[in-house]
Amino acid sequence: MTDPALLFDLAFLLAAPVWLLMILAPGRRVTDRVAASPLTVLPVLAVYLLLAVPVLPELWAAVSRPDLPGFQALTALPNGAAALWAQVIAWDLLLGQWIYRESRRLGLPPFLTSPLLVLTILLSPFALLLFLPLRAARRARPTAPVPL
């Protein structure tokens, strides 16, 4: 059995290079290619599977009949908590890639997008709540993408 603490750490480490590219190297060809690919989450999902399979009965119970005690029981298990973390990392990464691509498409400057991406890593719902009005405002007045 693989150490859940090690896999917990590995989940973010596998996503970190994509985040670094989007935050520190926006507009570069390699960054745009990487951010356009949904395959970036596959390594994180592999970690998720390694963590989720050993607790699949508990995971299935928590998601098929969701209630707070069921999720508490799942997160009390090292593999359960780490699997949920890996799932969050994967979805946050996909959300961050979408924010990055939309920001590029709409011509939002990196000095605005990069902090949003950092916030997406930390508290993605807040980042999305900030990004959606920015996106709507920018879509209301189309502009050419900002060169970097």
Rank of each mutant, 00 (worst) to 15 (best):
R29L: 12
L49G: 13
R135P: 02
F71S: 14
V63F: 07
L49A: 14
P115A: 06
R65E: 14
V34T: 10
L132A: 15
L24H: 14
A15V: 00
L129I: 04
V146E: 08
P142C: 13
L95C: 04
A76Y: 13
A76N: 07
V47D: 04
V118Q: 09
V44C: 04
L119R: 15
T40R: 11
V30L: 10
P145K: 07
D92L: 00
L129R: 12
R141G: 05
M22F: 02
G107S: 00
A144M: 14
V47N: 04
L122I: 10
T2R: 12
A62L: 04
P125C: 12
W60P: 04
W85E: 05
A36L: 11
T143Q: 15
L132P: 11
A140N: 01
Q97T: 10
W85C: 03
I121L: 13
V18G: 03
L134V: 06
S114C: 09
L116W: 01
L7D: 00
F71M: 12
L20N: 11
L123I: 15
F111I: 15
P66N: 11
L84C: 03
P109R: 12
D9V: 09
W60N: 11
R65I: 07
V47R: 02
L20P: 15
L134C: 08
L128Y: 06
R135Y: 08
E58P: 14
P133F: 02
A81P: 01
A62W: 02
L117I: 11
R139L: 13
L24S: 12
L116Q: 01
L108A: 15
L130V: 07
F71R: 01
L45G: 01
L94H: 05
L7S: 00
V30P: 02
V53E: 14
N79I: 01
V63Y: 06
P78C: 08
A46T: 10
T113F: 13
V55W: 12
Y48N: 05
V18I: 12
Y48A: 01
P133Y: 11
A52R: 01
Q97H: 07
V146P: 02
P110F: 02
E102Y: 01
S124N: 11
E102F: 00
E102R: 07
L39I: 05
L56K: 07
R28A: 14
Q97V: 03
R65N: 11
V63L: 13
D92R: 09
A82Y: 00
P43W: 00
V118G: 05
L84R: 01
A127G: 02
L39N: 07
P17N: 04
L94T: 08
L116S: 01
L128D: 08
V34Y: 04
I99P: 05
L129Q: 12
T113G: 13
P109E: 14
A76D: 04
L95Q: 12
Q97C: 14
L14C: 09
L128N: 14
L56M: 09
L59V: 08
S124Q: 13
M22G: 01
R104K: 10
L13I: 07
L123G: 12
